[in-house]
Design a protein around this nucleic acid. Sequence first.
DNA 1: CGGAATGATTGACATATGTCAATGCCATTT
DNA 2: AAATGGCATTGACATATGTCAATCATTCCG
Lengths: 193, 193
Amino acid sequence: MFELLFQKFDEKIELSQGEKLLSKSFFIPKKIRKKQYLLQEGDVSKYTAFVEKGFLRCYTIDDKGTEHILQFAFEGWWIADQYSFLTNTPSRYNIDALEDCELLLLTKESEEQMLEKIPKLERYFRLLLQNSLIATIRRLESSLSDTAEEKYNRLLTNCPTIAERVPQHMIASAMGITPETLSRIRKQISLRK
Amino acid sequence: MFELLFQKFDEKIELSQGEKLLSKSFFIPKKIRKKQYLLQEGDVSKYTAFVEKGFLRCYTIDDKGTEHILQFAFEGWWIADQYSFLTNTPSRYNIDALEDCELLLLTKESEEQMLEKIPKLERYFRLLLQNSLIATIRRLESSLSDTAEEKYNRLLTNCPTIAERVPQHMIASAMGITPETLSRIRKQISLRK
DNA sequence: CGGAATGATTGACATATGTCAATGCCATTT
DNA sequence: AAATGGCATTGACATATGTCAATCATTCCG
C-alpha cells in the first residue's frame, strides 16, 4: 500500500529503510468507494491525502447548483483543502472519489510529528509545495491568456490519460467552460485534421 | 531597511534579537529605479526578493508583443520566478519595477545557509509557500468561474490600493481582459450607483 | 510654450462562449 | 426486449468580450 508513496519520496530525497518504516506509522490507510466523500463543504479538513490508487476531484457548488471542479488528483498526487487544513475553518470545497481509491491520510498532528522524527521529509514537503505553486501559477497563466482550445491542448499534454478517465463535462468544468463549448472545440480540432 | 521584513517575521514566528541580526547578513539590500528590470526573460533567476518599498510586476510578452501581467508585488510581499530559481533554467518571465524600489535579495545558497542557521525560518517560509498556494488557487478559481466584473471587485477587495497605484490597463492585463473591457465594466458599475 | 507620449474612453463591429432545448447514443437495470 | 439514466452532440439564439479606430485628457519633456 505504500509502494507509490515511497517511490515519490525516492524521487526527491533519500530515506533509509528504517525511516521509511517509521514514516508508515504516521499515515492512516483508507479505502473509499467511488462517489464517497473525503471532504464535504462545511466540514473542517482533518487530512492531507496521498492517492495510492484511483482518483478524486475537488470542487465547489455555486448558487445555481453548478459544480466547478478545481482539480483532479490521480495516483501519486496529494490532495487537500490546504486552507481549511491550515486554519481549522470549515471548507468551501467538496472532495470525492471518481473511482474506488486507496488513500494514505495524514493529520496535522501526525504530519508535524513525522517531520520532527524524520527531518529529511521537510525537504520533500517543501518541494511538493513549491511544485504545486508553480503548477498552479501555470494554470492561472493559461486561464488568463489562452483560448479555450489552447487550454484544452495544454491539459491533454499535461495529463494525457485524463480524456479516457474523466467524463468530458468534468473536463469542461475544470477548464471553466461549458460542456457544449468543449464539444464544439473538439469537433473543430477533429475537422482540421 | 529591514523593518518591514522583521515585522513580517513577527507575524508568523518568534525570533530573538540575535537571530534577526544574524538573518540580516544573508540578504543583499538593493535599490532599483522605476522601469529597471529585476529579472529578464531568458535570464536564470538568481534571487528571491522581498519588497521593502515600492512595487514590481511579473509578466510575459506574447508573440504579438502583448504584455500579460501575472502578478504585482507590493511592500511586504515576496517576488521571484520560483521555477527558474528552483531549477536553474532560463526564466519565461520579466520582473520590473513600477516605482523606485528597495529590495532584500536572497540567493539560493544564502537561503539554504540561513535556514540551516535559523531553523525557525523554515516555518516562516513554509507558511509563505502555503499562503501563496492558497491565494493562487483562489485566483485560479475566480478566473475559471467568475465574470470579469466579479473578478474586478474581488481584486479591489483583496488589494484596495491597487487602483490608485497601477494604471488601469495593467489591472486589465492582470485580470486577463482588454483595457477597453475593463473601462466598460467600470462604467457599468458607476452607472448602477 | 507646444508637441509627443501615455492612458482612458467610446463606437461599430467581429468573435467566442454561454444558454436552452432537442436528439441520439450507450450502458445498465428491470 | 424495453426502459432508464448519464453523457455527448447539435442548432438557434443571447451575451460577453475582443478588435480596431478615433477622440480626449493628462503628463512629460525639449
